[in-house]
Simulated assay, not measured.
Amino acid sequence: MKKIVVKKRHSIRKSQGVDLLLRLEEQIGSSANLFRADMIEVLETNADVSLFMVAKKPLLMDTGAWVFPTLKGAVQVPFPERRVTVDAGAIPYVVNGADIMRPGIVAVTDDVKAGCPVQIVDERHGKPLAIGIALFDAPDMRASTAGKMVKKFHHVGDEIWNMEI
């Protein structure tokens, strides 16, 4: 992907903010309340994803199909939902943008659904390393022994992470 350039930024109406948080609640449940703010701004960019500034930080992204915290959002406002935990051996690959393979996964929360966003976290500290799209539901992921389980969407050092505002 090319470098993301912010063309405009403006605050959204309260009703739009409520809709945004309702869509976020569909993904992460009551933890969506952690992202409430008096002012939410939308960034108009050249990317396929819409980015939202909460408290002047790019904490949320909207693809049209779903709303989910950005990686910075997951780091700054930790939430327990939608987690795929990987072992220490997978960390260097994940932070460099690799998809998540089954041998590196040590735990999956029950709310992981195929086609929905998840946060990939490290086993030791529980710190988010990337945001991905689950390719299988949680039970199928646990039952599997090999193959790709999560497609990478956003990781440390990518264009969303390095975006200058």
Rank of each mutant, 00 (worst) to 15 (best):
P78M: 09
I165R: 11
K72C: 12
F52E: 08
R142I: 12
E164F: 09
G29H: 00
K151I: 03
A146G: 14
M1D: 10
D122M: 07
V42W: 08
E41C: 14
E159D: 08
D122P: 05
V95A: 06
Y93P: 06
L21I: 09
L135I: 01
K151Y: 09
I28R: 02
M163D: 00
I105H: 06
M141I: 11
K57D: 13
H154C: 04
H125N: 09
K7L: 08
S30V: 13
H154Q: 08
D99Y: 01
L135P: 03
M1G: 11
K3P: 00
T85K: 13
W66A: 15
F136S: 11
G29C: 06
I131S: 00
F136C: 12
M1F: 01
T70P: 03
T63L: 06
P139M: 00
M101Y: 12
R9N: 02
K3D: 12
D140W: 06
A74D: 09
V18R: 11
E41P: 03
K113R: 15
M61W: 12
P80L: 09
I105G: 08
V54I: 12
A107N: 15
F79D: 14
L22Q: 13
M163G: 01
F52H: 05
L51M: 12
L20Y: 03
P103Y: 00
K2W: 08
I133K: 08
M53Q: 14
E159C: 02
T145Q: 15
K7P: 03
Q16P: 05
A65N: 14
V94I: 11
G97K: 03
V118G: 05
T145C: 10
I40M: 12
V106T: 13
P58D: 13
H125A: 15
G73H: 04
D19F: 08
V121L: 06
I131K: 01
Q76A: 15
G104C: 02
F35N: 04
M1R: 06
C116R: 15
Q27I: 12
M149V: 08
R142K: 15
R83K: 15
K3M: 06
L22I: 11
Y93E: 05
Q76N: 14
H154T: 00
M149K: 04
L71C: 03
E25D: 10
S50W: 15
A130S: 10
R9C: 09
D158E: 02
T85Y: 05
K56N: 12
P69G: 07
V42M: 10
K57H: 10
D137E: 07
V18I: 15
D62S: 07
V121A: 04
V67T: 07
L20D: 00
R9A: 07
I100G: 11
V84Q: 08
P78G: 04
V106R: 13
I40L: 09
V86W: 02
K8P: 00
F68A: 10
A47V: 04
T109I: 09
H155I: 01
R142V: 14
I12A: 01
Y93F: 10
K113A: 14
A114D: 08
R9I: 06
H154P: 01
G104E: 04
K148N: 08
I28S: 03
G147R: 06
I91E: 09
G157S: 00
L71A: 11
